[in-house]
């Protein structure tokens, strides 16, 4: 059966994930070493120790995401995070930065290393380099590949692959995107926050909901309609249409979430080892519902049964879902 890797932003969410059937839970420390550095979220060292004990007692694994890029001169914060994750019994750490990966491989040779999606390793050459140079055991593939491309990559590498199947959809070269930095000065890569809440403002203006990120109006929706979070790459923009007029639309991506439930059998056939659910910033209610649904789906896939569909639409951003690049159709 494919491994189900589930998000935990808080100890309560970790317990909810394990109880709902997660094979593995991933989480991060409450600082800028992980790419979900949101207010009120993440784990202290003590909480991680308790979480690891809770998961291990129930046969589940815990992965610690330390997947931002250390600032020059401040590496000690990231080195300490790797050391503490190892000491506290994490089953693996999820890393993106080459220097940090080199440090972890050298200082903690017994620690299992996973390559974060933030490393944007999207071809066999890149993945094999990480495997050969640092002993990376698993790569989390960027959300820009089709199932066929994943199949082709798996034929040319020896490490496990993990792919996202549900949740927030990043359509950029992850770890390289500067849109959030451009709008707010803060990014997921360096600060652990894409479109940080500190720069988000909602207001009701003339019968509409408006969502702004920094100085930019990202969404304007009529009252009563779904209100997406103002992520720059999923914003609605007005631009010249090339004919002297203007056009308004979602230039990069619609405000939708990934739901690749129906592609699970194809991903299994493609040689994928683990399925990842995005959403460490979401509640324990979300985690419990999504994990339970996907545990049923991977068990069904394992038995060759059809995939359930549409169970989780209400939980998705914009209340709409897509299969993303896995089965991309061009507009």
């Amino acid at each position: 059966m494919m491994e189900l890797v589930c998000p935990a932003g808080t100890p309560a969410a970790l317990r909810a994930a394990v109880d709902a059937g997660a094979h593995t839970v991933y989480c991060g420390f409450a600082d800028e070493t992980n790419a979900r550095n949101f207010p009120g979220l993440n784990f202290s060292r003590e909480e991680l120790a308790e979480g690891v004990a809770y998961a291990h007692a129930r046969g589940a694994k815990v992965l610690v995401a330390i997947n931002t890029f250390p600032r020059a001169g401040d590496q000690v914060l990231w080195h300490r995070a790797v050391r503490d994750a190892a000491d506290l019994g994490a089953d693996a750490v999820i890393l993106a930065d080459l220097g940090l990966i080199a440090h972890a491989a050298e200082a903690h040779p017994g620690l299992r290393l996973h390559l974060s999606v933030q490393a944007a390793a999207a071809n066999p050459d890149a993945i094999n380099f990480y495997a050969e140079a640092f002993g990376i055991r698993r790569v989390v593939l960027p959300r820009v590949l089709s199932v066929e491309e994943i199949t082709a990559i798996n034929r040319e590498i020896d490490v496990e692959t993990e792919v996202f199947v549900f949740g927030g959809l990043c359509v950029m070269a992850e770890g390289r995107c500067s849109l959030s930095s451009y709008a707010t000065g803060l990014s997921p890569n360096m600060n652990g926050v894409c479109s940080p809440a500190s720069h988000v403002a909602y207001a009701d203006v003339a019968g509409n909901h408006e969502a702004r990120l920094g100085d930019f109006l990202i969404h304007r929706t009529p009252k009563g309609m779904p209100v997406p979070y103002p992520t720059l790459c999923k914003g609605c923009f007005t631009s010249p249409d090339g004919k002297g007029d203007s056009q308004t639309g979602h230039i990069f991506e619609d405000p939708v979430s990934l739901d690749a439930t129906r592609l699970i059998p194809a991903l299994q056939k493609a040689g994928v080892s683990a399925l990842k659910i995005e959403g460490r910033q979401r509640s324990r209610a979300y985690v419990a519902q999504v994990v339970r649904a996907f545990r049923a789906a991977v068990e069904a896939a394992d038995q060759g049964a059809p995939m359930p569909e549409g169970l989780l639409a209400r939980l998705t951003e914009g209340q709409a879902a897509t299969t993303g690049a896995y089965a991309k159709t061009w507009r």
């Binding site: 909602y202 209100v227 209610a285 998705t316």
Partner: peptide
């Protein structure tokens, strides 16, 4: 813990300011 806060927000059932 019966409903997700973000989902309630996306659907407009909860508004924040």
């Amino acid at each position: 813990g019966a409903e997700d806060g973000d989902a309630l927000f996306f659907s407009g059932e909860l508004q924040i300011g």
